[in-house]
Design a protein around this nucleic acid. Sequence first.
DNA 1: CGTTGATCCTGGGCGC
DNA 2: TGCGCCCAGGATCAAC
Length: 300
Amino acid sequence: MPELPEVETIRRGLEPCVVGLSLESVTVTDQKVLDWSAKEGRLAAVEGQRIEAVSRRGKYLVMVLDRHYLIFHLGMTGQLTIRDPRRHDSAFFERTVTGLEWCEQHAPDRHTHLHLFLGDGRQLLFRDIRKFGRVYVLGRSAEELAAFFRVHRLGIEPFTSDYNLKAFLSGFKNRTLRLKSLLLNQSFVAGVGNIYADEALFEAGVHPARRVCGLRKAEKERLFLAVQKVLERGIEFGGTSFRDFVNSEGEKGTNQEKLYVYGREGEPCLTCGTPIVKTVISQRGTHFCPTCQPRGGKRL
DNA sequence: CGTTGATCCTGGGCGC
DNA sequence: TGCGCCCAGGATCAAC
């Protein structure tokens, strides 16, 4: 599930190899992944434009072109990979010197919905098994971009000056929803998904089912630091490849080996040894340690 | 307005 | 071995 760290990992991989190249042509094999803004020829408008930058806001990847923004949201299973057609695709191939080698490059298949042909002969492939991902085309103006993020209700951006304690605390005021729901809400902090929500709640030592208005100040402050900390770790280890995530080179991340609670149901808590519990909170699988994250809050 | 729940989509894992 | 069932979840939208 591409959350902020996974999208940032892709962004960092893409940036050095596509910036400065032209987007020669675009081929769509499934219209389903196109937002209305990219349908009926509006995506073809990007053909011939130069890629000036690759940026990110929350879980959205933004390619800055001459006259447009080309925006990707990867949904659940979306992948953006670079492919060099002059190289072998994912397969073992024979090298005269080093012998058998595994090539990570992703070959296009029936889940590859978009081909972007780049000026240097390489391709950028958008692949999405479950088709929850979307591609958007926006005119290149600050107003239009701001309106896009307003419409999609994106909240505080981690790792910027917007991510400050005052803004963070305002998300807790007069609200009755559970902590897990608050963290999954993109209008609170942009970029947190199911994995990092569970990890942040563990890091802060708070129970995911607690109501947000019932938190003590110290607990909110711990969560404020925890959210950014777990996202930072995710980026540091190249993203979490629980299932489908691969970076722009088609390689898996290693953050799945660093998780404390997500996907560890029944396994001992790395802090106290208590078996990790999995429940459902607001329709989402939720993992926590009942000892480190007691419902009544931690007594110090 | 705030909150909850259904919906989309496909592959994988499980039980029989 | 194979079939059917259910689960995974990000964002949106309807309903209360």
